[in-house]
Simulated scan of single mutants.
Amino acid sequence: MASRLKASRRSLVRRAAALAGAATAAAVLTACGGGDSSSESSGHAGPGMGAMSSSPSASARQSGHDAQDVSFAQKMIPHHRQALAMAGLAPSRAGSQQVKDLAAAISKAQDPEINTMTGWLKAWGAKVPDSGASGMAGMPGMDHSGSSVPGMMPDGDMGRLEKLSGDAFDQAFLQMMIGHHEGAVDMARTEKVKGAYGPATAMAASIVTSQSAEIAEMRRMLGRR
């Protein structure tokens, strides 16, 4: 009888120990689980949310446009201004109505593009090229050979064009504008490949298409003379 009581007591002790162990284990698991959950929300979700909330604006600032986009706008603005200056001579100096019409089309297309690119540069906090007096001789951003921007006319050629009229003006204008457009097309092709800003690469694609067509037309006009 005594032995049975001792055995019973030992069994109860083992059960109590087992229950205590189970309870302890459960408490430990609960604490661990709560800690993991808290760690996830504060250690992972917290920084994750912080990164998510800050990365879109950071990404827009950093990858919305790149250095190529800035360079494209800063070079194309004075390039367009010179084209407008050349086109502005046509109404009073050109002998051919076709040349006058072409000059008007160039002005109509490129003037709004200057305004658009100027807006981009201001939004990006980048320098907008100085306008200068007329975009012709001594244009800011140009060296005396006009080589700083592809297709830009040297001061001497621009000055010579101002003195011509009639058929002589028409031929010089077409020849110079072909070279001018070729420079714009080259810059635009580079922007299409290397630019990151969608509107800028879209404008570049439009310039390639429209000015390539005008180059072909000007060559035909010269061939008919």
Rank of each mutant, 00 (worst) to 15 (best):
M177C: 02
A126I: 03
M1H: 09
R81C: 09
R189N: 13
F72E: 04
T201A: 04
K6S: 13
V70L: 02
D69M: 00
S38R: 14
G50I: 11
P78R: 00
Q171F: 05
A94V: 01
R61E: 14
M1I: 08
L164D: 09
Q211K: 00
K192C: 13
T116W: 00
A25H: 04
S131R: 12
Q62I: 12
G146M: 07
K108W: 13
T209A: 14
M117F: 01
V70S: 03
I114Y: 08
A126Y: 00
A2L: 15
Q211N: 07
Y197L: 09
A205Y: 12
A204S: 03
T190G: 08
G34K: 11
G35K: 09
M153Q: 11
Q62H: 12
D36Y: 15
A200D: 01
M1S: 09
G48I: 02
G88S: 10
A188N: 02
R61K: 14
H80I: 07
S92Y: 09
P112C: 08
A67I: 12
G34F: 12
Q110S: 07
A104E: 06
S63L: 15
V208T: 08
A196Y: 03
I106D: 09
A25P: 03
L84R: 00
Q110V: 05
A109M: 10
R220L: 12
G159W: 02
S206M: 11
M221I: 03
D111P: 09
H180Q: 04
R224F: 09
Q74S: 09
H65E: 08
L121Y: 01
A25I: 08
G183F: 02
D157Q: 11
T118R: 03
L161R: 03
A196R: 08
R220M: 09
S59H: 13
Q74R: 05
S71R: 15
G151M: 00
E214R: 01
G95N: 00
S165F: 10
A137T: 11
S212H: 07
A67F: 12
I106F: 00
S55A: 15
P154N: 07
Q98F: 00
A22K: 03
R81W: 10
I114Q: 02
V128Q: 01
T209F: 11
W124H: 05
G151D: 01
G151K: 02
M136F: 10
G119I: 05
G95S: 06
V193D: 15
V185P: 06
F72G: 00
Q74H: 04
A20M: 10
D101F: 03
E113A: 08
P129K: 04
D157C: 08
S148R: 07
S42E: 13
S148Y: 03
M218G: 01
H79T: 07
W124F: 05
S165N: 11
D157W: 08
A184R: 05
G35S: 13
A18N: 13
L121S: 04
M203H: 07
S37E: 13
Q97L: 08
M86R: 02
H180T: 04
K194W: 10
S92A: 14
H180K: 01
D66T: 05
A26L: 11
P154T: 04
A27M: 10
A45K: 03
L29C: 10
M1F: 10
A2E: 15
A126L: 04
T24D: 13
N115T: 15
D101T: 10
A25K: 01
M176I: 06
R189T: 14
